[in-house]
Amino acid sequence: MLFALSTLMLVSACASSHMRDVPEPVTVSKPTDNTATLVLMRPSIFGGAIQSSVFDITSGDPQFVGIVSAGKKLAYEAPAGKRRLMVVGESADFMDADFAAEQIYFARVAPRLGLWKARFSLEPVPASSPDLESDLRACTWVENTPASRDWARSNMVNINAKKAEYLPDWNSGSDKPFLAQDTGRKARQ
């Protein structure tokens, strides 16, 4: 019991103070017209002291999506079509997606060992995955605040530098994570 309590305290202490806990966002049950919702979740407590920030880099310039702490999940409503997302920790990693309108998609922010701190990857999770529901239950909802947006703006030089450093290698690689249109689920009506 002491171990469980210590773990709970550690996880809650590592949550980003820039994000705010919320009930399930409306976009998770019904994305608006011509959009899809991507649920980014981080069920693992590994690397819990390090925050993972996510950006949509489809246009070339990083657009802040949010900070996904250990044990948290975030809903991102995006235009239907092809998107490229980037997760930043010690390094940057990427995932391409092709969203169909009015679908809900899922991706796991997966921590991995880094040299100085945790690195992260984005892993597509098909709606049919047997682990999806337990991963979702392991996380609580968060949303952006003015403080999270300020953090992203003040760190944009570093974020762009990581994108410039890691994107060429990712582009030349062959094993790129891809979230396909047919891996989502229809929004509840």
Rank of each mutant, 00 (worst) to 15 (best):
M1T: 15
L2H: 14
L2S: 14
L8P: 12
L10H: 15
V11W: 10
C14D: 13
S17W: 13
R20M: 13
R20G: 10
D21F: 12
V22N: 09
V22C: 11
V22I: 15
S29Y: 11
K30N: 11
D33Y: 09
A36N: 07
T37Q: 03
L40S: 02
R42C: 01
R42T: 05
P43T: 02
I45E: 07
I50Y: 10
I50H: 02
S53Y: 06
F55V: 09
D56E: 07
I57S: 03
T58Q: 04
T58P: 00
Q63C: 10
V65Q: 02
I67Q: 04
V68S: 04
A70K: 01
G71R: 06
L74F: 09
Y76G: 02
A78Y: 04
P79F: 09
P79L: 09
A80L: 01
K82R: 08
R83E: 01
R84K: 03
L85V: 01
M95T: 02
M95P: 06
A97E: 07
D98I: 08
F99Y: 06
A100G: 08
Q103S: 03
Q103I: 07
Y105S: 01
A107S: 06
A110K: 07
P111C: 02
G114P: 05
L115W: 08
W116I: 13
F120Q: 02
L122G: 01
L122H: 03
V125H: 07
P126T: 06
A127L: 02
S129W: 07
D131P: 07
D135W: 12
D135V: 10
T140A: 12
V142Y: 07
P146F: 12
A147S: 15
S148K: 09
R149H: 13
R149L: 13
W151Y: 14
S154N: 15
N155W: 01
M156R: 11
I159R: 00
I159H: 08
N160G: 13
K163G: 09
A164P: 00
A164C: 00
E165N: 12
Y166L: 03
L167F: 09
P168C: 04
S172V: 14
S172A: 14
G173C: 04
S174E: 12
S174G: 11
K176A: 02
K176L: 02
F178Q: 08
F178E: 01
F178G: 05
Q181Y: 01
Q181P: 07
D182R: 09
T183I: 07
G184W: 00
K186M: 10
Q189P: 11
